[in-house]
Computed example of a mutant assay.
Amino acid sequence: MFWILAISIALVAALLIASPLLRRGEEDVTARPNDAEVYRDQLSEIESDEKSGLIDGESAGQARAEIARRLIAASQDAPRKSSLLRRRQAVMLAVVLCLVVPAGAVALYSHAGLPDEPDFPLRARFESPQPDSNILIRRVELRLEEHPEDGRGWEILAPVYLKRGQVAESVNAWRNAIKYLGADARRYGGLAETLVVSSKGRVDVEARDAFTKILELVPGDPRARFYLALAEAQDGKADAAIAALEALKKASDPAAPWMEVTDAQIERIRAEKEQAAKAPGHPTQDDVAAAADMSDEDRTQMIRTMVESLDARLADDPQNFEGWKRLLRSYVMLQDPAKATEALKRALAAFPADSDNGKALISDAKELGISLEGVTE
């Protein structure tokens, strides 16, 4: 039954492909070769030569007769030969498509395929003693639908989901694993790192909490120390971040696998710190010294003036990413949510929400508690 169906489908497909070729062969019957046009041109040339006196009338008549004979032959015999040749080519190609290709496909499948194997429906795949990985994953998922309290099942699925690119599902699986199996440094580590992947490299509040839990369970854990240092840098505390990373280097073996990435992050944070120092609105040493002797009210007014100056400069220099980050934090510090939201809208006009910088701005805004309503629409 399988072979009859397969061959029938192959033949129908081949006929559908070959039918235009057969029609084209029929259309070619009316085609005319180029020889007839050449002979007609020669007749015109003889007439022109006779009028100009290059040849006499008798020679011209003989030449006309010979060319006329050839013209008649070219007009009658050659078209039939040409169209016949083209039609034969079309038929041969149609035969190849209708017979040779399907026959070759059948021969190849009979050699390399499994024509004698029985059907393998989905239910049989689930019951197979050696199912593939997708079936195994689905088995666990089906069990968790009936027994969501199975923490071990969630723990198995979490890293699998991450490898498959299902980041949100992986985060949920790690949360459930911790919920049902309890606190464990490895589970918190899986959750935290998956959260970092989910937020495009940023260490959000939940990830920080998870890394802090790891340090409570395993004091000095290098992975947790590394990511918490990055969180300090994301908060604008470059000096604290560099100090934490330097401390991690000092406490680690020089051959530790994380040393190279730690050095790279120290260089990056230092470079960003230097760039931020050049950004508009950054207080000078004189500003800091003057603020130390001010009253709280005067100090707040000085800060507000600096923030307004930064805001005005960003209108002229909207591509200053660090400036926008500082402006958002400044308005939150001044407890001015309306201006913070308005600044975020302008920042996202310069750095679209789907860009890396735009995503970083939105992540900062979430952590700062800035309303996103109507901002990313």
Rank of each mutant, 00 (worst) to 15 (best):
D132A: 03
A168H: 11
K345Y: 00
L248Y: 12
E117R: 15
P283T: 10
D311C: 00
W3R: 15
S295Q: 04
R32W: 01
I303P: 00
G236V: 03
D204W: 01
S371W: 01
A247Q: 14
A315K: 09
S371F: 00
M294F: 05
E232P: 00
L361Y: 05
E169P: 13
S170G: 13
D316F: 00
W3S: 13
N357F: 04
W3L: 15
G25S: 13
M1T: 11
A264H: 08
D77F: 09
G201L: 05
R123M: 09
L99I: 15
A13G: 14
R270H: 10
M1C: 09
H282C: 01
E141C: 02
K278C: 03
V38Q: 09
S252Q: 03
V197W: 09
L93R: 09
R225T: 15
G57W: 08
T300A: 15
H147M: 06
P219R: 05
V197S: 11
A350K: 03
E373C: 01
A365P: 11
G374P: 07
N176V: 01
E141A: 06
G53F: 03
A73P: 00
S128E: 04
T194A: 06
S309Q: 12
D41N: 12
E58S: 14
A107R: 05
A207E: 03
V196W: 05
G182S: 08
G25K: 01
N172S: 12
A229G: 15
I55Q: 02
A124N: 08
K359D: 08
G61T: 14
L230Q: 15
P352Q: 01
V106M: 15
E149C: 01
G182C: 08
P148H: 02
A177Y: 06
G113I: 06
